[in-house]
Design a protein around this nucleic acid. Structure first.
Lengths: 194, 194
DNA sequence: GCAATCCCATACTGTGCCGTATGGTGCATT
DNA sequence: AATGCACCATACGGCACAGTATGGGATTGC
């Protein structure tokens, strides 16, 4: 009983709070918020909940920390790179292209969208959605649309984005890489006419 | 102990399987599949689970029956009326307009979309989605698009639809009726150019 | 090399739901 | 009026997870 026995892919022996947060985000992306449960995560990490409750006071605290971590990384990795592009149309195209990369981040977003009833998740999704819609509206305005049309177009684009990440969850489009690129091209051409 | 004591809005005294299915769909539309639980539903209906297990062998059976009922009613009330319209463009407009009515049905669809991991729900949503995308693709083809573009446009429209019902869940758009009508107008104008 | 601290295992209680067993009550039929 | 069936209440066992209590092994600082 001296050696470590069974463990998934033999990770590090001792954990910290960040390890739990990352594991929570993995489970969240794969199986939704319900999978962010203490005991299942502990099994996944090869420890018991005795470990967990040293790092976090409660399950809610873990969820809170995990989604805050996601919100920040998503802001940095999706919004910021797009905002850096000067030309409005090209900025929109860049934003849409971000969806195909950063799979993990969008999987988390999709998972959060499926748990809006949760008190911790609802406000977050609402906040992030409002921020992105505002960002899109601004971009469409600078692309030459009037205020009203820009708002509508932003809503449409964001809805299409949300719908797409949801559909991607079941592989409903079931597209090859070429089909996907073609779809994105049409997507952009339809929403951002020139 | 002769009279009925407490009960929500005093419904009928004795229930049948259909009552349970309708209650299940209500709970599903309001709070997702997790709320379709035997004991909570029993409380909601003012009875105990002794009643439930007379009508259904298991919780899965109730879910199965409820979503089958929804699938049929949705087919009849959303797809069929749109399919009846002759002109392709007008048919698409009619389909999109259906979304603003039939709120309950779309709330259920949104709830099911948030529970794709469930073995009973996944195939259903996949089936319904494929059917609608095929329907949309066909409509776009008849509207003059080539096969490839029609498929992409159908995906885009369906994604926007899925995203919209999800966003409606948090009242993210937070639109007045006029704003909504205006949005739908832009939605149609953008996706179905003439 | 020793103590303090960090990290975790074990064992427990509590809760909410699923499913079963069994008995009881109202209603229709005869 | 008695019987049979449809419908429901009550009570029970089981499971999975949240959270607590406590002790023990590992590590670090000295």
């Amino acid at each position: 009983m001296m050696l470590r026995k069974t463990r998934k892919s033999e990770p590090k022996a001792r954990l910290n709070a960040q390890d739990w947060e990352l594991a929570a985000l993995e489970a969240l992306a794969e199986s939704g918020l319900a999978a962010v449960a203490v005991e299942p995560l502990a099994r996944r990490l090869g420890v018991t909940k005795g470990s967990f409750y040293w790092h976090f006071p409660t399950r809610e605290a873990l969820i809170q920390a995990a989604i805050e971590r996601w919100e920040k990384s998503d802001e940095d990795q999706v919004i910021a790179p797009a905002a850096a592009v000067a030309d409005p149309r090209e900025r929109l195209r860049e934003l849409i292209r971000q969806v195909s990369r950063k799979r993990q981040s969008h999987a988390v977003f999709a998972a959060l969208f499926r748990t809006l009833d949760q008190p911790l998740v609802g406000p977050l999704v609402e906040r992030v959605s409002a921020r992105r819609i505002a960002f899109l509206t601004e971009a469409f305005r600078h692309a030459g649309f009037d205020a009203n049309t820009a708002a509508n177009r932003a809503r449409l684009a964001f809805s299409a984005y949300v719908g797409f990440v949801q559909l991607a969850q079941i592989g409903q489009p079931r597209m090859t890489h070429e089909e996907f690129e073609d779809y994105i091209r049409d997507f952009i051409a339809t929403l951002i006419p020139r």
